[in-house]
């Protein structure tokens, strides 16, 4: 798998939101939502992206799909540079890259029947006749575990899990190869989560899908992902396959994150690494290593030099001076 050219290649991606101030609305500072992220996603794999709220996971996903303009860096999809393309040029690629959203209640237009919502995507991207479109939509509904008679229903007639299935059908409608799941199961009950995860896995094998699975839920990410990227304050902290990250975490932030997972075995004590202080503001970005303000093992040079993104063992990258 590693020898294949990657499906998606992100290089030194930066996404800053300007803070404007003064009378002439000058840019006085930037919120560094994504700060120098490089990653590769290979065909057919699931890349999990974890990190606490506000660490830039969702922004990364949205920027990759062209929903946000990047500030710097490049995004290549199947070798074509798609970063900073106009909407018109991007449309060709949008067919291949889809997104599943977090909130199944907010991500469907309340005034549109779900059949029409799915059909609309086919209208945008294909030249199918009305009848063919309807057949395709019914296929999709069945594929994601709904019934074809759900075609004429409005979103408010569905439960959260069913709506998320509609969201999945929408992402699937144009046969994409990459799907960004932005907290796709976080808003659901645990039992429904399991069903949706199962569905996502099934669809992955039947359609040869590649997922970027963004979540703050470490257990779900572990279950879903082949490789896991840990993000902290817009930057990459550690990347490796699931085993490497979960069994042999190197970065102190990853260790702290993993130690916060509640253990199901009572009485079994595990040392918990508690981080002190709050997440620094992305508008007042720390110098050197972004994590040095809270890092339990930080040395003086951590505040000055930004750690390199280096490979410590095969496929296991980490950004830390002390590893």
């Amino acid at each position: 798998m590693v020898n294949q050219p990657p499906l998606l290649e992100v290089e030194k991606l930066k996404k800053y939101y300007p803070i404007k101030g003064g009378i002439i609305q000058r840019t006085i500072s930037n919120v560094k939502a994504v700060h120098d992220v490089s990653l590769e996603v290979h065909e057919g794999e699931t890349l999990g992206i974890v990190g606490e709220s506000g660490c830039g996971k969702s922004t990364l996903g949205r920027t990759v799909l062209g929903l946000e303009n990047l500030t710097e860096g490049s995004i290549r999809f199947r070798g074509d540079n798609i970063g900073g393309l106009s909407d018109r040029k991007l449309k060709k690629y949008k067919k291949d890259m889809q997104m599943i959203f977090q909130d199944p209640y907010a991500s469907l237009n309340p005034r549109q029947r779900i059949g029409d919502a799915l059909e609309e995507i086919l209208i945008i991207h294909t030249k199918l006749s009305k009848k063919e479109r309807r057949n395709r939509v019914q296929e999709l509904l069945v594929e994601v575990g709904l019934k074809d008679e759900h075609f004429d229903r409005y979103p408010h007639e569905f439960s959260g899990g069913q709506r998320q299935r509609v969201g999945i059908a929408r992402a699937l409608a144009v046969n994409p190869s990459l799907i960004v799941c932005d907290e796709a199961v976080s808003a659901l009950d645990v039992s429904v989560q399991a069903q949706i995860i199962k569905l996502l896995k099934e669809l992955q094998s039947t359609h040869n899908l590649t997922y970027m699975f963004i979540s703050h839920d470490l257990a779900v990410v572990r279950h879903m992902s082949d490789r896991v990227l840990v993000m902290y304050l817009g930057a990459t902290a550690e990347l490796g396959n699931s085993d490497q990250i979960y069994n042999n975490p190197l970065h102190p932030y990853t260790k702290a994150l993993l130690s916060s997972i509640p253990r199901p075995i009572p009485g079994k004590k595990k040392e918990r690494i508690q981080l002190v202080g709050d997440l620094p503001s992305a508008s007042d970005y720390p110098s050197g290593c972004p994590f040095h303000t809270r890092c339990p093992i930080a040395k003086s040079h951590c505040a000055e030099v930004r750690p390199e993104w280096r490979e410590v063992e095969e496929g296991h990258f980490v950004a830390c001076h002390e590893v």
């Binding site: 929903l67 991007l90 959203f101 991500s107 237009n109 995507i121 991207h125 144009v174």
Partner: peptide
């Protein structure tokens, strides 16, 4: 600001379509 508008953008819907249909 609703997510379904973002969803329509992510599937590549035109501005006209988003404005008048959604």
């Amino acid at each position: 600001k609703q997510e379904y508008i973002l969803a329509m953008k992510s599937v590549g819907a035109s501005d006209i379509r988003i404005i008048f249909k959604h």
